[in-house]
C-alpha cells in the first residue's frame, strides 16, 4: 500500500486498556453497592458478603485507574486532569466522581476490615478485652454507615459515568445510541449501570462463596441478568446491524450474549431452584460477560 493509491490500517484511539478500565470501574461500583447496601439494610449475617464487596471495590477501582493512567500519552501528567477542568467534558467531571469514589471505597474498605478484625478478636478474647476492642474502634466505626451511604451515590455515579463517557461522543453512531430512540436518554449509561451492578455483585459473591446461603443475592443477580438481556435486545433492535455482524460479531454473540447472559441465566435458574452451590460458574461467566461487553462497546464504537 502507498500513500497515493490507498493507506494501510489505522490504529484506534482506545484499546483494551480502556475497555478493562471501564469494566473494573463497573465491578468496583457494583461491588461497593452490594457491600454498602447489605451493610446498611441487613443484619450481620452477610458480613462475609460485605467484606468481599468492600475489599473488591478499592482494589478494582485502583487497578482500573492505574490502567487508565498508563494508557495516557503522557502518564506522568495525569495530575493535570485534576488541575485543568472543563465542565463541558464528561471525562473531566468523571475524573472527580471517580476520585471521590475511590477515596470512599478505600476508607470504607478499611472500616469494614477494622470492624471484622475487632469482631474476630472479640470472639477469641475475654469480656473486658472485648469491651476495650469495641470502645477503641467506636469513634471510627461511627463513620462506617455514613460512608457507605454516601458511597452508594458515588458508586452509582461511577458505574453510569463509564457509560456517559462514551455516549457523550455525539459523533459516534454506536456510543451515542439513544434509549428507545429518545435523544435525551443515552443508552450506554443505563446498560453499563446494570452490567456494573450484576458483575460487581457476581464478583462479590465469588469472594463470598463459602458463606451462608446466598440465594437472595442469586435471585437479584438473576433479575439483573434478565434486565440486561432486555437492554441488549433493545440495543440490537435499535442500533445499526453492521455492529453485530462486523469484525466484532463473535465477541458479541459468544462472549456477551452466550457466556455473559444466556448460560448464566439458565444455570442460575437451575441453581436457585435445585442446586445450592452453583455460585462460582454463574458469577464467573457473568464477570467474563461484563468484560466482553466493555470490549465490544469500546471497539465497535471505533471500528464502524
Amino acid at each position: 500500500m502507498d500513500v497515493t493509491w490507498g493507506i494501510g490500517a489505522e490504529e484506534i484511539a482506545w484499546g483494551g486498556m480502556i475497555a478493562i478500565y471501564l469494566f473494573l470501574a463497573g465491578v468496583a461500583g457494583g461491588a461497593f453497592l452490594t457491600a454498602s447496601l447489605t451493610d446498611l439494610f441487613n443484619k450481620n449475617q452477610y458480613s462475609k458478603v460485605i467484606r468481599s464487596g468492600a475489599y473488591i471495590a478499592p482494589l478494582t477501582i485502583i487497578f482500573g485507574l492505574l490502567l487508565l493512567v498508563v494508557d495516557l500519552g503522557k502518564p506522568f501528567s495525569f495530575w493535570k486532569l485534576l488541575l485543568y477542568v472543563n465542565f463541558k467534558s464528561v471525562m473531566s467531571i468523571g475524573v472527580f466522581i471517580i476520585s471521590v469514589f475511590s477515596a470512599l471505597s478505600v476508607v470504607y474498605g478499611f472500616l469494614v476490615w477494622q470492624k471484622s478484625t475487632a469482631e474476630r478478636k472479640l470472639r477469641q478474647t475475654s469480656a473486658n478485652a472485648q469491651v476495650a476492642a469495641t470502645t477503641s474502634s467506636k469513634g471510627l466505626q461511627a463513620l462506617r454507615k455514613p460512608v457507605a451511604a454516601v458511597g452508594v451515590l458515588f458508586s452509582i455515579g461511577t458505574a453510569t459515568y463509564t457509560g456517559f463517557l462514551l455516549s457523550a461522543i455525539t459523533t459516534n453512531n454506536f456510543w451515542h445510541t439513544a434509549f428507545l430512540g429518545l435523544e435525551s436518554i443515552p443508552f450506554l449509561p443505563i446498560l453499563f449501570l446494570v452490567s456494573a451492578t450484576s458483575t460487581g455483585l457476581a464478583a462479590t459473591l465469588i469472594g463470598a462463596v463459602k458463606c451462608c446461603d446466598l440465594t437472595p443475592y442469586k435471585k437479584i443477580d438473576m433479575v439483573l441478568i434478565i434486565l440486561e438481556i432486555i437492554l441488549i435486545s433493545i440495543l440490537y433492535l435499535t442500533a445499526d446491524p453492521i455492529f453485530f455482524t462486523g469484525s466484532m460479531a463473535t465477541l458479541f454473540w459468544l462472549g456477551v450474549v452466550t457466556v455473559g447472559l444466556i448460560v448464566p441465566l439458565f444455570l442460575s435458574i437451575y441453581g436457585v431452584s435445585k442446586h445450592k452451590n452453583i455460585v462460582l460458574p454463574v458469577c464467573g461467566m457473568v464477570v467474563i460477560g461484563g468484560l466482553c461487553l466493555r470490549y465490544f462497546v469500546v471497539f465497535t464504537g471505533q471500528l464502524f
Binding site: 490500517a9 489505522e10 490504529e11 484506534i12 482506545w14 484499546g15 483494551g16 486498556m17 480502556i18 475497555a19 478493562i20 490502567l67 494508557d71 462486523g246 469484525s247 465477541l251 470490549y295 471497539f299 471505533q302 471500528l303 464502524f304
Partner: peptide, 14 residues
Amino acid sequence: RRNFIKGMLYGTGG
C-alpha cells in the same frame, strides 16, 4: 477504520 489490526482486540491495544 474498519480494517484495523485484529491483534489489538484482546488487549494488545492496551
